[in-house]
Nucleic acid binder design. Structure first.
Length: 609
RNA sequence: CGGGAUGUAGCGCAGCUUGGUAGCGCACUUCGUUCGGGACGAAGGGGCCGCAGGUUCGAAUCCUGUCAUCCCGACCA
């Protein structure tokens, strides 16, 4: 391709709309344009990148025996109602774009395809003899994100590879899951990405085991916690760790175990309380009030006890609340803090916020207009493990010192609700500490089990002649996000440095001065020779000054640059590697052979490294 | 949804406090000089100043509303 014909528009200044390097560079170098919030046009250069990524994905998945297919994006609500996800995905914080057709029938734009594929599988897969099957597609997904951001990182319309596997038993599912794990590692390596696999929360998709693949980058939206020995890595949403030891409360349990009253005027924050009385935060129990909203409209107040020095992990809490309430009230839609304003609106007596203890009685909820009249009481294990502690006395400006479970109130159910923190000791080896890094989630694989197949009655006949639900796995890769993640990981002050395997073009031949016939002729000749050799080559034939063309070549990030300039008359050209900046003078007759050696190796991505 | 910010030419910005009918740099067009790291000079084209009301003789500028975009958050009282 000739640059003069490429519709190339590069920007000198960073567009105001972009914040992170990869987003700025993709805009500046003419790879993308914003059409709306979270909606981007993939310009010809980026489309080549996306196709190269897709080709790698296809090769690796086809290699595992997976079948490529293409499913509809317009999906009937009925399908989602059968799986039980319609309300959760369309109401509240739901992310599914949905609409009505002319007959008034409801439809959704596919944010994911479990429903469609499972219904198809139920229809087509009848015997264990057909299993296992793994189907995948690469297509646009639609998600009405709460907050789209960072260009392609979190778009409302984006390209995803999603795969779904079907099995006769769990062991077979685990095999395919492991095969996909391996395929994913190869895919990211071949794309030239440093990616790590981490344990993950399976979120709204559901199912049991799940693992995310993170491209490590400062601008990542996710926090990864990993042990120094490399044996444990998890998303913070999911991570487990050993909490710091609590400092024992001097004097132990007092006044029959329900504690002594202590005047604590205006000391509603743990920090203020501790500094005023010399307590350690780990000697206190803090109480959080929250409100869970369910699909059926039920509003359930939550009372969560945590050790004062610990932080709540909302994802763990949401999972715990779902497990306890969803069979009765349907999908958990959201959990919000229970505020004084909301309580007043509900017609309740004032609640002593800032001075609450775990013994706060359900009576404070009496007279509630729409809330359930009882708290769902949950506690983190760090709180229930305390022999004696400091907590609010449930009246303003007062705490209790030396309270203990049982005497004060029954200990609530003890769970893991705390957020693991960097510096925490690891479960697998207390000598190891968790270290934090940031990551961009580019892939996620799940063992779904039979959640969807049971809901959608997708069954097969087993060897014994009985019908049972299919075992399922699902596996996603954010193709467009991966492209931007690659830029985030591979750029410098001058622009993008694409890994060769996914670069839009592998080589750019720059004619320094097109007014010079020898340069022009040699440039054209090399361009033709590279094309004939199967190299993806760009020819910068524009009548710009050399400096402009060099700047643009750097910005675009083409891995190799061949400069045809002053030496052209003597048959000499310059070969420059974009990422390293290394340059050498090479006879024009030898440059193709040299390039082929480099490209041969680089096309494999990091696999060869 | 809560908070913050910004909307002026394709991009980046100034002008707004103190109302008088729009400017700079880049990009674009033409000509000349230049020609290996975003050249210089000259001449041009392009804007209902996000939109709608209001105040005023007069609004980019003041007031009200609205829309859009970006950032932070939606977690500990």
């Amino acid at each position: 391709m000739r640059v003069s014909r490429l519709m190339l528009v590069t920007l000198r200044d960073d567009p105001a709309e972009a914040e992170i390097p990869s987003h700025k560079l993709l805009l500046r170098a003419g790879y993308i344009r914003r059409v709306g919030s979270g909606i981007y046009a993939y310009l010809p250069l980026l489309w080549r990148v996306l196709q190269k990524i897709s080709a790698i994905v296809r090769e690796e998945l086809n290699g595992t025996g997976a079948l490529e297919t293409l499913l509809p994006q317009l999906q009937p609500a009925e399908l989602w109602q059968r799986s039980g996800r319609w309300a959760g995905y369309t109401a509240g914080e739901g992310i599914m774009f949905h609409l009505e057709d002319r007959q008034g029938r409801e439809l959704g734009l596919g944010p994911t395809h479990e429903e469609v594929i499972t219904a198809l599988a139920g229809d087509l897969l009848r015997s264990y003899r057909q299993l296992p099957v793994n189907l995948y597609q690469i297509q646009t997904k639609f998600r009405d994100e709460i907050r789209p951001r960072f260009g392609l990182m979190r778009g409302r319309e984006f390209i995803m590879k999603d795969a779904y596997s079907f099995h006769a038993d769990e062991a077979c599912l685990k095999q395919t899951y492991a095969a996909m794990d391996q395929a994913y590692r190869r895919i990211f390596s071949r794309c030239g990405l440093r990616a790590v696999a981490v344990e993950a929360d399976s979120g709204a998709i559901g199912g049991s085991a799940s693992q995310e693949f993170m491209v490590t980058a400062e601008a990542g939206e996710d926090l990864i916690l990993a042990s120094g020995d490399g044996r444990y890595a998890a998303n913070q949403e999911r991570a487990v760790s050993l909490p710091a030891d609590a400092v024992p409360l001097p004097g132990g349990a007092r006044a029959g175990g329900s504690g002594d009253a202590l005047p604590t005027p205006a000391q509603s924050a743990i920090e203020a309380l501790c500094s005023a009385h010399g307590f350690d935060p780990s000697q206190t129990v803090k109480v959080l009030l929250l409100l869970a909203r369910f699909e059926d409209g039920c509003l359930q107040p939550l009372l969560v006890s945590l050790r004062g020095d610990q932080q709540l992990n909302e994802v763990k809490l949401a999972n715990a609340v779902s497990a306890r309430c969803s069979s009765e009230h349907g999908t958990l839609l959201e959990i919000t803090p229970l505020t004084a304003e909301a309580a007043a609106k509900e017609g309740l007596e004032p609640i002593p916020f800032g001075f609450m203890g775990p013994h706060l009685e359900d009576a404070v909820l009496s007279g509630a207009r729409s809330w359930q009249p009882r708290f769902l009481r949950l506690a983190d294990a760090t709180a229930t493990a305390l022999q004696s502690f400091v907590c609010g006395a449930n009246s303003l400006d007062t705490h209790r010192v030396g309270a203990s479970w049982g005497a004060l109130c029954p200990a609530p159910e003890s769970l893991d609700l705390r957020a693991a923190q960097p510096g925490d000791r690891c479960l697998h080896d207390p000598a190891q500490q968790l270290q934090a890094s940031r990551g961009i989630e580019v892939g996620h694989i799940f063992q779904l089990g039979r959640k969807y197949s049971a809901a959608l009655e997708a069954t097969f006949t087993n060897e014994a002649g009985q019908d049972e639900p299919l075992w399922m796995g699902c596996y996603g890769i954010g193709v467009s996000r991966l492209a931007q993640a690659a830029v985030e990981q591979h750029h410098d002050a001058n622009g993008i440095c694409w890994p060769t395997a996914i670069a839009p073009y592998e080589v750019i031949v720059v004619i320094a001065n097109v007014a010079e016939a020898p340069q022009r002729e040699l440039g054209e000749q090399l361009y033709g020779a590279f094309q004939a050799a199967g190299i993806d080559v760009l020819l910068d034939d524009r009548s710009e000054r050399a400096g402009v063309k060099f700047k643009d070549a750097d910005l675009l990030g083409i891995p190799w640059r061949v400069v045809v300039g002053r030496g052209a008359a003597d048959g000499q050209v310059e070969l420059v590697q974009r990422a390293s900046g290394e340059r050498s003078d090479v006879p024009a007759s030898a440059v193709l052979a040299q390039l082929q050696v480099h490209l041969e190796r680089e096309r494999a991505g990091l696999l060869s490294a």
